[in-house]
Design a protein around this nucleic acid. Sequence first.
DNA 1: AATACTTTGTTTAATTCTTGACAAACTGAC
DNA 2: GTCAGTTTGTCAAGAATTAAACAAAGTATT
Lengths: 214, 214
Amino acid sequence: MSKSTISNSVIRRLPRYYRFLGELEHNGYIRISSRELSEKMGLTASQIRQDFNCFGEFGQQGYGYNVSDLRFEIGKILGLDTLTPMILLGAGNLGKAIATHIDFHNKGFDLIGAFDVNPDIIGKDLGGLKVKSIEEVGTFCAENKPVAAILCVPMTSAEKLVNTLIECGIKAFWNFTHYDLKVLHKGIVVENVHLGDSLTTLSYGLNNLESNNK
Amino acid sequence: MSKSTISNSVIRRLPRYYRFLGELEHNGYIRISSRELSEKMGLTASQIRQDFNCFGEFGQQGYGYNVSDLRFEIGKILGLDTLTPMILLGAGNLGKAIATHIDFHNKGFDLIGAFDVNPDIIGKDLGGLKVKSIEEVGTFCAENKPVAAILCVPMTSAEKLVNTLIECGIKAFWNFTHYDLKVLHKGIVVENVHLGDSLTTLSYGLNNLESNNK
DNA sequence: AATACTTTGTTTAATTCTTGACAAACTGAC
DNA sequence: GTCAGTTTGTCAAGAATTAAACAAAGTATT
């Protein structure tokens, strides 16, 4: 039986399970036990079994888990079985890199539009999309109903842009600005990506190597 | 007095503290209490006080914390008071975006070299650096002694490249490949950035909006 | 079919992390 | 200088997370 509330810790591990299962499937694995998966992923078998059991009973005693089935189930849980239309705001260096680097279809999204303020960028091609002026975003949303948005704009313009986008019906934000986007309204989800914080963490790790005996 | 071992949860919050304190300082704040900071950051005051106390007593009863001093101290803890020489491996779309988007000096690093395999990219300028052939990385490291590396290469070439780099004296990896870089050797630190996992998490959040009453 | 082995789902225990509480210490106004 | 108010550092309680343990249910081999 599936739990009513899933803890955040479990949720943050799900994409990684999904990724590893994909690799296993790719490598021809038909079945896998929690013990073997735990060794590959650097977790405990107990944690893996408990994580999966939050959502249902996907395994079988004495056998383990069917890789393909399990991956499919976790994919469903993650909402990867449907494609959510998504737009990109800010098609500069970072926006362009994200748009071309990410396999959106495998993450449950479909990138259907890209917008910028810079006249030099507007009109240019970006992975098959023609970058539009950000002034067109209202009409575009009315017509194409995107539900998610990638924010690759400067921090200063982020806050008001977000409000506009929420009015346009955007419900999910993948935020790359140097700014902590708070979940203001109900029914809005935000994923803040702080690349700078990640690099800062690396600096800490490097400077505390001696003290870490790992 | 400072604790002997700092928990991972605390460490992951440090960059965010540092960032917020920078904003506060920028906005003219001289002092701040744990209560006020907690409101701004969406944490509890208790947690903030306990986090800071892992490293020392930076505050004063009845007054709070001096913003600038506290930021400086956390910066020191994070190793931001020295610049670690860093190189970029893979100067494609993503590598280029990272190199130009990140303020390395404010994160404790100095980007001193960029490498790629693609002849079309080699020789091109990248934020003031001329992209070199990846075959030159050995001699470059011998001469310039970089300690950290950004991995923006395809997953397939990552593993052997890492081994080469470790032999060249690289101790810290900021890994953007779709591949979980394990810390094989002692004295090596890794920060895996999985942008795909982040987007997948957003998909989950979007698909479970109804059930979340947040 | 019986038996030895494997592995799950689940319960219980241990550990880690977070929050609440409060004395001690300081500020600032009078 | 005194006193009311504020806020830290710290301890202890509470919550959440992780790990261990084990019965039940399967597999596989003979």
